[in-house]
Amino acid sequence: MKKTVHEFTTKIPEWKPYVAPLDLSQATPEQLEALKVTPSNTKVSDYVLVLAHDVETLQHRTPLFNGIMYNRGGLSRAEREIGAVAASIVNRCVYCAAVHASRYNQLTKSETVVDALFADGMDAQIEPRLKAIFNFAFKLSQCPSEANDKDMQALVDAGLSKEEILDLILSSSLFGWANRLMHTLGEPLSD
């Protein structure tokens, strides 16, 4: 019997939707196009099949997501993941946090930062640059945003360029979006 996962983890859970995913046999040509379904590629996750109910936003989602997380230049991939993790902690999206914390660990080959962030959030004892990054993203993810000029100045003082700061704003904001879908439309399950 699988159980809902409530605690943050780097072990990626399954995701079970609360609403019915799109039935591919009922899909419109626009939905099939947005899902990139072809006779040789019929594997689509339940999450994407849920989002396919709103095909007009879905068609921009993949290029936007890939651009924000993997574009060349600007903030490092690992530091963009910290923006994603910060938002996911604020919004308690256990699934998104697991995916992006584990990606950070893979990229940096270390688990100490994620362990500290999961345990202590903004009080985590981590290097100053990562702390400035995490704290800015954590405060920007509140509703309303609590990020202020001092938090912005801390990013500059930690050595981030304008291009890097922009990428951090984008990755943490993007997860304000993703968390509001993943955490509210379904739940993470594990053995």
């Binding site: 922009l166 509001r180 439309l185």
Partner: peptide, 27 residues
Amino acid sequence: IVRLSELVAFVSYQIRVAAGLRLMRDL
């Protein structure tokens, strides 16, 4: 329900991008 969720999620994203850019502008 999915359309509503996308609307709330997207607007929440857009507001945060603008909030961050304003802080950059005012540096």
